[in-house]
Simulated assay, not measured.
Amino acid sequence: MARPPKELTPEKSVEDLLGSKIRKLRLAQGWEITDLAAKVFVSPGRISSIETANDPPGRDLTVKLEQVFGVDGALLELQMLIKSEAFKNYAQRFLRDQAGARSIHEFSPGVPGLLQTADYARALMALDFTDDPEGLEDSVVRRAERQEVFGRKNPPWLWVVLAEPILYQGRGSSEIMARQIDHLLEMGERPCINIQVLPIDQPAVPGSISLLTLRDGTRTAYAEGFSTGTYYQEPSDVDRLQRIYDHVQAGALDLDASAQVMRDARRKHQR
């Protein structure tokens, strides 16, 4: 027996309202999810995620849905509200997609969460949890849990460009930094992980960029600055961030030279 569709609460969020409208329009046409998916050239799973408010459509897909249903602007207006709405947990969707991604390419002015040791993560996040030690430990545990993707049968392909200054900037004690660099070197030996160092004299960007290729081939991007972040799903936005990433990577050292820079940095923390 087929499982009943998820009950939506349109008053709860714009995502629920948009998913509810799309489901009602589909049912009014007498279409199955597979029918609608074929008409807008996406997978049935993508339509299901939209209708259940788990992954709202981007602008391009919303326009296609409007054309198929013969409605003008009704869906796009809601999609634009979702895009402009301020979310406290702005990174949630990115982290969920990152956990299931086929490949991850990232530039980071700091050590990315997927490559942090627990001690480094704790030192890094301590200022945000000065009055909440339990919250700090919970965040450290959740960050470590994200790294479990590298222990699965088909781990993601991870390519990181790391800004050189972070190897020398203290996060906690010298011992913590030395162990963090050891961890980077160890992770870099895995066949699915590559780490390049961007030298100090090369141009960087003021923030991090993460490019994801999901299991179904969809490409997304996430850019983050100080306390702000944006998850991009529109192809034009992803292409723009891909070009920025490519320019940064072009200035990075090769893998062997990068490993040597990390070893040199580790020796400085041992003094």
Results as ranks from 00 to 15, higher is better:
Met1Phe: 03
Arg3Tyr: 04
Pro4Gly: 06
Pro5Tyr: 09
Leu8Trp: 10
Val14Phe: 13
Asp16Lys: 01
Leu18Ala: 07
Lys21Leu: 15
Arg23Asn: 08
Lys24Pro: 00
Leu25Ile: 08
Leu25Tyr: 15
Gln29Glu: 15
Trp31Thr: 10
Trp31Glu: 03
Glu32Met: 10
Thr34Ala: 15
Thr34Glu: 15
Thr34Tyr: 04
Ala37Ile: 06
Ile50Phe: 05
Ala53Glu: 06
Ala53Pro: 08
Ala53His: 05
Asn54His: 12
Leu61Gln: 10
Lys64Asn: 10
Gly73Thr: 09
Leu78Thr: 06
Leu78Gln: 07
Met80Arg: 13
Met80Glu: 14
Leu81Tyr: 00
Ile82Pro: 02
Ser84Asp: 15
Glu85Met: 06
Glu85Lys: 13
Phe87Arg: 12
Phe87Thr: 11
Ala91Gly: 00
Arg93Gly: 00
Arg93Leu: 14
Phe94Asn: 00
Gln98Lys: 05
Ser103Thr: 08
His105Phe: 08
Glu106Phe: 00
Phe107Asp: 07
Ser108Val: 01
Pro112Asp: 02
Gly113His: 08
Gly113Tyr: 05
Gln116His: 03
Ala118Cys: 05
Ala123His: 02
Phe129Glu: 03
Glu134Asp: 15
Glu134Pro: 00
Gly135Val: 12
Glu137Trp: 03
Val140Ala: 06
Val140Pro: 06
Val141Glu: 14
Val141Thr: 12
Val141Tyr: 09
Glu148Pro: 00
Val149Asp: 02
Phe150His: 09
Lys153Val: 12
Trp157Ile: 10
Ala163Thr: 01
Ala163Phe: 12
Arg171Phe: 14
Gly172Val: 07
Glu175Asp: 12
Ala178Lys: 02
Arg179Pro: 00
Ile181Met: 04
His183Arg: 11
Met187Thr: 03
Met187Leu: 13
Met187Ser: 05
Gly188Arg: 06
Gly188Asn: 06
Cys192Met: 07
Ile193Asn: 03
Asn194Gln: 14
Asp201Gly: 01
Pro203Met: 08
Pro203Trp: 12
Ser208Asp: 02
Ile209His: 05
Leu212Lys: 01
Asp216Lys: 09
Asp216Phe: 01
Gly217Asp: 08
Thr218Phe: 09
Thr220Cys: 15
Thr220Asp: 07
Ala221Leu: 11
Ala221Met: 09
Tyr232Ser: 04
Ser236Thr: 13
Arg240Gly: 06
His247Leu: 14
Val248Asn: 05
Gln249Phe: 10
Gln249Glu: 14
Ala252His: 11
Ala252Lys: 09
Asp254Ala: 01
Leu255Phe: 08
Ser258Glu: 05
Ala259Thr: 05
Ala265His: 06
Arg267Leu: 13
Lys268Cys: 00
Arg271Trp: 02
